[in-house]
C-alpha cells in the first residue's frame, strides 16, 4: 500500500515544520542577511490602455506585475520576492498563442528549505489569477538549488499541488505569502 502521493505530502509537511519552527523567532534564519535588490517601477499608463477597442495581450511584464508575482511576500523576510531577486522579469515567459506561462525562480541560497513553499506560492498565485486556458509551469532556475529536480517534480505534479493545498498549515503559509500588505 505504498502510496507515492502520501510521501510527497508528508515531505511538504516536513518542509513546513522546519519553516514554521524557524519563523517562530527563537532560532536564527538560514540566511539572515540576504542580498537585496531594487524594485522596478510601475508600468506607465498609456492611452491605448484606456482604449476599449484595443486588445492588450498578456505579456511577460504582466505576469511580473505587482498584482501578480513580484509582490508575493517571502515567507521569512518582510521583503517581496522581487527584492530578494527570487523572481525576475527575464525569467518569466508567456506564450499567448500556445497558452503557456513559464516562471523560473531562484532561491536565495542553494539549500533553501523554503524553495518548495516559494514555488508553491507562485504556482498558486498564477492558478488563481490567470485564465484557465494557460498551462502554468513553475520551476527553479537551473543550477540554483541543491534539490532542484525534486522540487520541480513536486511543483509540476497537479495532484501533489492539490494535495498540498489540502493541508491547512501549508495553505496558511501560502496564503500569508499571497496576502497583499498594502490593503
Amino acid at each position: 500500500m505504498e502510496n507515492p502521493e502520501g510521501v510527497s505530502v508528508k515531505h511538504n509537511v516536513i518542509d513546513l515544520n522546519s519553516a514554521t519552527n524557524r519563523m517562530a523567532g527563537g532560532t536564527s534564519l538560514e540566511n539572515a542577511n540576504p542580498l537585496i535588490f531594487q524594485r522596478s517601477g510601475e508600468r506607465l499608463l498609456t492611452a491605448t490602455d484606456e482604449d476599449d477597442d484595443i486588445t492588450d495581450p498578456i505579456d511577460d511584464r504582466e505576469i511580473f506585475d505587482p498584482y501578480l508575482i513580484r509582490n508575493i511576500n517571502d515567507p521569512e523576510h518582510p521583503l517581496s520576492l522581487e527584492e530578494l531577486n527570487v523572481v525576475e522579469q527575464v525569467r518569466v515567459n508567456v506564450n499567448e498563442q500556445e497558452n503557456g506561462v513559464s516562471v523560473e525562480f531562484t532561491p536565495t541560497i542553494p539549500h533553501c528549505s523554503m524553495a518548495t513553499l516559494i514555488g508553491l506560492s507562485i504556482k498558486v498565485k498564477l492558478l488563481r489569477s490567470l485564465p484557465d486556458r494557460f498551462k502554468i509551469d513553475v520551476h527553479i532556475t537551473p543550477g540554483a538549488h541543491a534539490s532542484e529536480e525534486a522540487v520541480n517534480k513536486q511543483l509540476a505534479d497537479k495532484e501533489r499541488v492539490a494535495a498540498a493545498l489540502e493541508n491547512a498549515q501549508l495553505l496558511e503559509v501560502v496564503n500569508q505569502c499571497l496576502t497583499s500588505k498594502s490593503v
Binding site: D49, E50, D52, T55, D56, I58, E62, D65, Y67, L68, K125, R128, S129, L130, P131, R133, A168, Q169, L171, E172, V173, V174, N175, Q176, L178, T179, S180
Partner: peptide, 27 residues
C-alpha cells in the same frame, strides 16, 4: 481574468485573490 484589457484583468486578479483568501487559513 481573460478580459482583453489589462486594466480589467488587474482588477479581476486583485478581487479574485481576496475572495480566494476568504475563510481560508492565513488570511
Amino acid at each position: 481574468l481573460d478580459d482583453k484589457k489589462r486594466l480589467v484583468r488587474k482588477e479581476a486578479v486583485l478581487a479574485r485573490g481576496e475572495w480566494f483568501l476568504l475563510g481560508s487559513p492565513g488570511r
